[in-house]
Amino acid sequence: MPPTVECCISSSDAALRSLADCDRVELREERCLEHCGICRAERFAVVNGTLLTHPELSAAVDALAEGAAGEGI
């Protein structure tokens, strides 16, 4: 099962959106994931159910884009 990446339309960016073209990732860009307090402060995404912010998020996105398929995330 591919890793699931959930992000808000307000907090996603080009790197996150580029995962939409990656077959190994299930990217879900939602209007709002109900984490507005975090979203207001910094970029975030929920990867396999775990909320990540910088620097863990950037590392996870890079790993997913390079085909690490979410192991260890």
Binding site: E6, E34, G49
Partner: peptide, 12 residues
């Protein structure tokens, strides 16, 4: 429950 699909992600 968090909103979303029931079989994956934060809403699982």
């Amino acid at each position: 429950p968090y909103y979303g699909p029931i079989d994956e992600g934060q809403s699982e």
